[in-house]
Amino acid sequence: MLSVTGITGGYGDLRVLREVDVSVRAGRITAVLGRNGAGKTSLLSAVAGLLPSVGAGRVELDGRDLTGLPPHRRIRAGLALVQENKRVFHARTVEENLLLGGYALGGRGLRSPARRAALEQAYERFPMLRERRRAPAGSLSGGQQQMLAIAQALMPGPKVLMLDEPSAGLAPVIVKEVLAMVAKLRDEGLSILLVEQRVEQALEIADDVAVMEGGRIAASGPKNGFDDGAVIREIYLGRSDERLTTGKS
């Protein structure tokens, strides 16, 4: 559904992505794992067209070439991105946030039939948002903001949803809820690119896995190759265990 090949890029002189290949199969979840600073967020930014400088590489969505398009054209083509840190518009109300999420939908009016229908769907999926629809998004709790961000991204009915650390800063119960929601969306047929630091939980719902390190893909493939827990140690406890054995001097 989504295929990214040979993406290279960064911020000005700073290269953070080096020839990254990653893909998402239709109706599946690809989890991108890796330590902080490995380039995971930059990868999503690059796919969404938000990374300031992208050198080489190709982004294809459902057979359509998105390379070089500005972000809004990519969203229109069926890509959706939930950014890190629940970037909802704090000063706007929940409903306004949702309507803005549906910006890419047709119709001139704020409440065009298409947007109205999407709004209704969002409220059905997240009843909590309906209750708080007139509240400024900034007054929601962290978990509610994350749900709002996801609901916003779903408004235009995307083909591929990209999520950047949706569990960050959330209580375990909420994390479970969020990831269950992600799995449910997949089961409904959505293709998902998930960047997640909670490796165990990400692996639980993922179909495919890509491990990033130093701006490159260090390993990738179907999940069952990553099931034994070694990958977690590699990612979070360092690639070479030698560092542990040197100990304190």
Binding site: P172, R198, V199, E200, G229, R233, L244, T245
Partner: peptide, 17 residues
Amino acid sequence: EYTGATDPADLEPAEPR
């Protein structure tokens, strides 16, 4: 908590190899 393991028993506390 750190890695999000649901069953902590999965995670051997990284024995130095």
